[in-house]
């Protein structure tokens, strides 16, 4: 049974739907990770996905981002009918290309290449997209400066603190100007102060650039930075709440 989110009941400034999932079902062996999920995500919206371990949060993120293809259901991406694509219908190469150009990712840990400096790590998505290295480095430097890491540009991940490493990861995720940023437990390995800093930066920059953000988290405080919060339990979306903009901005 699909569970549609009552987004219509929540006042929101974001009207154009950018990502839309219908009837998503994902099974791993005998385990049903998603049991028919319907979800609409609007352009520029910051959504927090919460739920207990094993509830299907990460699977939902992966299905929405085209990392995995669901066993059933559809994921539509695009804010206008003309540009909308059905992600599940794309082959792996096309989905990889879409992830590279339109999506950004931040994970809990271990996402930076240990041999590369911070600036090189940030420039990698641009290089993958075919940009000249000189231009990529310039753009990466700009983003590091924007996230307060100008002085750490030439340091390697092992020389950075956890919070700094996460900010580098955010810079890397945003450097290509993605329309959607997927963040899976971005503050999971940080202390509360660092986590707060990371979330402030993440949501501020996202709102500034109009990037849609989907955050997976266990932490209510992290979730409080979102415009909207949805709860996933046993592979179903069970609830959705609109959060106060003042809380998100604090």
């Amino acid at each position: 049974m699909s569970t549609a989110i009552a987004t219509t009941t929540v006042p929101t400034p974001h009207t154009a739907v950018l990502l839309s999932a219908r009837g998503l079902r994902v099974t791993f062996g005998h385990t049903e990770a998603l049991r028919g999920v319907d979800l609409d995500i609007n352009t520029g919206e910051v959504i927090a996905v919460m739920g207990p371990s094993g509830s299907g949060k990460s699977t939902l993120l992966h299905a929405l981002a085209g990392v995995i293809v669901p066993d059933a259901g559809t994921v539509s991406y695009g804010s206008t009918p003309a540009e909308t694509v059905e992600i599940c219908a794309l082959d792996e190469t096309a989905r990889a290309r879409l992830r590279l150009t339109d999506f950004g990712f931040v994970f809990q840990f271990g996402q930076l290449l240990p041999d590369l400096s911070a600036i090189d790590n940030v420039s990698i998505p641009l290089l993958l997209g075919g940009m000249r290295r000189k231009d990529a480095l310039r753009q990466a430097r700009t983003w590091l400066g924007r996230l307060g890491l100008a002085e750490q540009a030439n340091q390697r991940p092992t020389e950075l603190s956890g919070g700094q490493a996460q900010r580098v990861a955010i810079a890397r995720a945003l450097v290509t100007g993605p329309r959607v940023l997927f963040a899976d437990e971005p503050t999971g390995s940080l202390d509360s102060l660092a986590a707060e800093n990371v979330m402030v930066l993440l949501t501020d920059v996202a709102r500034e650039t109009g990037t849609t953000v989907l955050i997976i988290t266990h932490d209510a405080r992290t979730a409080s930075y979102a415009d909207r919060e949805i709860i996933v339990r046993d592979g179903r979306v069970t609830a959705g709440f609109a959060l106060s903009a003042s809380v998100a901005g604090s």
Binding site: V67, T93, A96, R97, L98, R99, L100, T101, F103, G104, F105, F107, G110, Q111, L112, L113, P114, I124, P125, L128
Partner: peptide, 11 residues
């Protein structure tokens, strides 16, 4: 790290 790069779209 290489796997996550592939997840991010590295061909």
């Amino acid at each position: 790290s290489l796997g996550l790069l592939r997840l991010m779209g590295m061909p």
